[in-house]
């Protein structure tokens, strides 16, 4: 998922994303750690492996063409370049996520591939929980250096062990299918402002309309139309925060050719109309205050110290 400090609000945010995969910026710790209340995160992929812990509530992850349900207390690991999407299954669900920089790995120490859920029944669960706790606690001490790096490697080692000790979930991905959908997602990400039809996307993928739609859904968890609407909703959100822009212009700018379509998409993916979304943003001063660390998603950041407390208090379900 997208970290909050990696995507800055910029003047050119209306520009289509040039790459389909996410650009992740790492600091001296060689990793990004962030905690948030997450509503959803649209399908995406990135080089950095990702490790999450559910602090509160529950989520549905779509990973590698499979839907996984996770509850408070569960861990999930997602290896490099795997398409994944996240959607909360109960309101105010929250998670904490580690993203590991490629510089942590070398030829002999490759990241674990594939994906892996670690629930409380897993043999390594307690060990991982302890590692996560230690890692977060150390991070809060701001002691960058080898000790800190050691903690990070301890955590990676824990993940590695957990994936060894259980039969690794078989990859059902056919690389080619995955690639086709990645290209399609990339196209949508670049051209959402235009009038895109599903038939046009299917043509580009050299697949029938039916086959394409099914494959898209299987890989990403969403139908192509749903994904397109989600991208438009996500792109409209930062624009709605800019009160200079009339709502009708925003609808046009992100490719909804009618305000009614934008309203419908917002109701579905945001649970509020664009107008309600705009107002909720401006009436939440704590949220407004954290404007700098917010980007285009609805995700509400949680302080890492609070996340650590939540981790310690969270009872696995």
């Amino acid at each position: 998922m997208q970290p909050f400090n990696s995507v800055k609000r910029q003047a050119e945010y209306l520009e289509p994303m040039s790459s389909t995969c996410e650009l992740i910026v790492f600091d001296s710790e060689h990793l990004n750690v962030f905690a948030a209340e997450v509503t959803y995160c649209q399908p995406h992929w990135h080089k950095a492996p990702e490790f999450s812990y559910i602090l509160r509530g529950g989520f549905t992850f779509t990973v590698n063409q499979q839907e996984i349900t996770l509850q408070q207390g569960d861990f999930v690991y997602i290896g490099p370049d795997i398409i994944h999407a996240i959607e909360q299954s109960t309101p105010q669900s929250a998670l904490v996520t580690w993203q590991f920089d490629a510089t942590l790995f070398d030829r002999n120490h490759a990241p674990v591939t594939g994906y892996q859920t670690i629930t409380p029944t897993h043999a390594n669960y307690d060990a991982l929980r302890q590692l996560a706790d230690t890692h977060l606690a150390a991070l809060l001490q701001t002691s960058a250096g080898f000790a800190s790096l050691a903690n990070t490697y301890q955590l990676l080692a824990g993940i590695e062990q957990a994936s060894h000790s259980q039969a690794k979930l078989a990859s059902t991905t056919e690389g080619k299918d995955d690639q086709v959908i990645k290209e399609s997602i990339g196209f949508i990400n670049r051209h959402y402002q235009e009038q895109i039809t599903i038939a046009q996307l299917a043509d580009q993928a050299h697949l029938s309309y039916y086959h394409f739609s099914r494959l898209f859904k299987k890989v990403s968890g969403y139908s192509p139309f749903e994904y397109l609407s989600m991208v438009r909703v996500n792109m409209a959100k930062p624009l709605l925060k800019d009160v200079q822009l009339p709502i009708t212009e925003i609808a046009q700018a992100v490719g909804f050719n009618e305000h009614r379509h934008m309203t419908a998409a917002f109701k579905k993916y945001c649970g509020a109309t664009p107008s309600e979304y705009r107002k909720s943003y401006y009436s939440d001063f704590q949220w407004r205050y954290s404007d700098k660390v917010l980007e285009s998603t609805d995700n509400r950041p949680i302080l890492l110290s609070d996340a650590l407390t939540m981790l310690r208090q969270s009872i696995p379900s």
Partner: peptide, 12 residues
């Protein structure tokens, strides 16, 4: 504290 914009509300 919060502002209702006529255009936004009209659309709603």
């Amino acid at each position: 504290y919060v502002l209702d914009r006529p255009l936004d509300e009209i659309i709603d």
